[in-house]
Amino acid sequence: MAREKEILLSNWESQIRKGTLDFIILLCLQRQEQYGYEMIKTIKSVARMNISEGTIYPLLNRLKKDDLITSRWVEMETGIPRKYYKITNKGLQALKDMKESWSQFTASLNRLSEEEK
C-alpha cells in the first residue's frame, strides 16, 4: 500500500516536472549561459528532477525556434565542443510572464488546498 502511494506520488510529481521543463530551462538560463549537460546537472540537483537527459534537447530546439533562447558553439581544450545556450530578451519577457502566471497558479492551488482542510 505504501509502495503504491509512493509510485502514485512519484508519477504525479514527474508529470508536473515534465510539464514545467521549459519554464525550468528558462529559469536556469536567466542566471547564466549554460550548455546542455550542465543544464541537466542543474535541473537534477536544484529541481530534484530525475529525467531522461535526452528529453532536454527537443525542448531546447523548440525554445530556440521560438526565439526565446540562442546558442553558440565553443571549442574546449578537452576537444569536446560545447553548445552554450543564452536567454534572449524575448525569453526574459516570456519568463517574467511565466513567473507571474506561476505565482497566480500556485496561490490559487494553495487557497484551494487550504479550503479542503
Partner: peptide, 8 residues
Amino acid sequence: EIKSHLLE
C-alpha cells in the same frame, strides 16, 4: 550536440 553531451 548529443555526442558532446555523452562525452561530458
